[in-house]
Nucleic acid binder design. Structure first.
Lengths: 194, 194
DNA sequence: CGTCTATTTGAATGTACTCAAAAGCGGTGG
DNA sequence: CCACCGCTTTTGAGTACATTCAAATAGACG
């Protein structure tokens, strides 16, 4: 049933059977069709979500109305706008499903209950934020110091399944290049001339 | 004495006089000359530091040995490699003073004591990490979607004091452009033609 | 099979980079 | 006080990487 999310959490902390039950009792499994917007700019994020099945992206609309993809998330990943969620303040991000998805949703009240009942969950959420921060740091450095084709290569190494699952222009908006240029990169790589 | 750091913390939580004393008792005020490396790649970060006076930068050495500045920090900012500090694992960042600096240092043992004694400090550190995350997200989006001169303009708006305090090539390594190009940008801006 | 969307291709352009050299600036010693 | 040295910034020429725009092709879905 909810094996995966337990597996995810127990990478960081151990749980008694009772604690597992308490935790899963606080979650709601929701299903969303492809292209559902789970959060939009200006809204307050009311969930931390664990993706049981599907694919989601988090993006930002820049000053020119251009979408910049911050993050792709697939099975076994968590998604949220944590700043908006924690402080209950308006988000400046969008979160959208790219496939039909099943997501375990944890709302603010449930999270609070969870943390006061089983404080060691603090660690789980801290780890998630930290990993987020490290990933983002690494990505910023890559964006600054690597060529687009190197970034593409690293991307398909880190997310091997994504290129088959999402449209190429989403990948372009993640890499920070035009959709045409992703096509050019792929052509070059295919002919091995890098 | 330690007014500033108290002011910083009490933006997030209220402190009784006793709690203030307990907190400041855990800190060590250290002074470092310009160009001191406080943390280098491979080391484990043993501090969270509050800058009382001075200027510091956090940078990363990319695959070509090129420095990418992640962050500048001046008075009233905190610095650390939080992932390395929390998990006591080797860092991949460098932290270096750019001016003679006075920094309140909090070591892992002291932080632990602080949190177990005054749990509401959890909030302070959570806010710091979150702010970090938001800033980094914003910076990534800018790096992807704005021209170098727009990024320069935003930089001097956010850090008005930095250009006067640090060498231009540090700013270049923050913006993700060559040092020569920062010079070109400045020339263009000076002649108002953007 | 036709329509809509996504991807590819190519030409022209622009933004930022590299390399090399010159100029500016701050400190130090004669 | 001036001359020199080292470090930083500026300037310019040539180049590379990535973009825009327009058009052609390919894929997906009803």
């Amino acid at each position: 049933m909810s094996e995966n999310i337990i597996g995810n959490v127990t990478r960081f902390i151990n749980l008694e059977p009772k604690e597992e039950q308490f935790f899963t009792g606080l979650l709601t499994l929701q299903t969303f069709p492809k292209k559902t917007i789970l959060l939009r700019e200006g809204e307050i994020c009311q969930f931390e979500g664990y993706i049981q099945k599907g694919c989601v992206r988090v993006y930002y609309l820049d000053d020119n109305g251009f979408e910049v993809t911050i993050l792709f998330a697939i099975e076994d990943w968590w998604i949220s706008d944590i700043a908006s969620f924690q402080d209950q303040k308006p988000s400046n991000l969008y979160i959208e499903t790219l496939e039909d998805s099943e997501i375990y949703m944890l709302n603010p009240a449930a999270k609070e209950k969870l943390l006061s009942e089983i404080p060691k969950f603090e660690r789980v959420f801290r780890m998630l934020v930290q990993r987020n921060l490290s990933t983002l740091q690494h990505r910023l450095v890559n964006t600054i110091s690597k060529s687009a084709s190197d970034r593409y290569l690293e991307f398909i190494k880190v997310y091997p399944s994504i290129p088959q699952r999402v449209a190429q222009y989403y990948i372009a908006s993640y890499l920070g290049v035009s959709k045409e240029f992703v096509s050019t990169i792929r052509k070059r790589l295919a002919s091995k001339q890098k």
